[in-house]
Structure formats: structure tokens, C-alpha cells
């Protein structure tokens, strides 16, 4: 195996790795969906508490999304840094 082929293989593996890293976004997406559905149900049951629920919903969505963001960061690191 010559050096050029090794570089090409490394490039390809990087792309595959970045793609695999983004699989973690599935969990974030599901989590955000669950949070939003729970919040909407809660708002439907208790419209007076909409303000509090919205605040907590955004907080929860942010926490769930941060996992997806970490996936994105890992993918970017794989693509551009290493």
C-alpha cells in the first residue's frame, strides 16, 4: 500500500466517521420531540401555566439539543481538525 492510497483511505474513513458521529443526533431529535409533546400537552391541560412551561420546555430542549450539538462538534472535529 503506497502513501497516496493511505491518504485517500484516511479521507474516506474521515467522511464515514463524521457521518457516523451524526447518528447521535437521533437521540437529540427524539428527546426534543418528547419534551415538546409533553409541554404542549401540559399547556393544553393547564393553559394558565403556559409561561412557566415554556421556560422549562426551552431549558429541556436546550439540554437535549446539546447532545446533538456535541455530535455535530465531533463530526466537525473529525472532518476539519484531525
Amino acid at each position: 500500500m503506497d502513501a497516496e492510497a493511505a491518504i485517500l483511505i484516511k479521507e474516506g474513513l474521515k467522511l464515514i466517521g463524521a457521518g457516523l458521529a451524526m447518528i447521535g443526533a437521533v437521540g437529540a431529535g427524539a428527546g426534543i420531540g418528547i419534551v415538546a409533546s409533553g409541554a404542549v400537552q401540559a399547556m393544553g391541560r393547564n393553559p394558565d401555566a403556559t409561561g412557566t412551561i415554556q421556560t422549562n420546555m426551552i431549558l429541556g430542549i436546550a439540554f437535549a439539543e446539546s447532545i446533538g450539538i456535541f455530535c455535530l462538534v465531533v463530526a466537525l472535529l473529525i472532518l476539519f481538525v484531525f
Binding site: A62, E65, S66, I69, V73
Partner: peptide, 16 residues
Amino acid sequence: VKVLSFAFRLFGNIFA
């Protein structure tokens, strides 16, 4: 982690 999370959330969304 908050720092990283803040920074990469905004960056990730807008860059993407």
C-alpha cells in the same frame, strides 16, 4: 460544559 454548549449550539445551527 455550559460554555461549550452555548458556543457550539449557536455555531452549529447557523453554520449548518
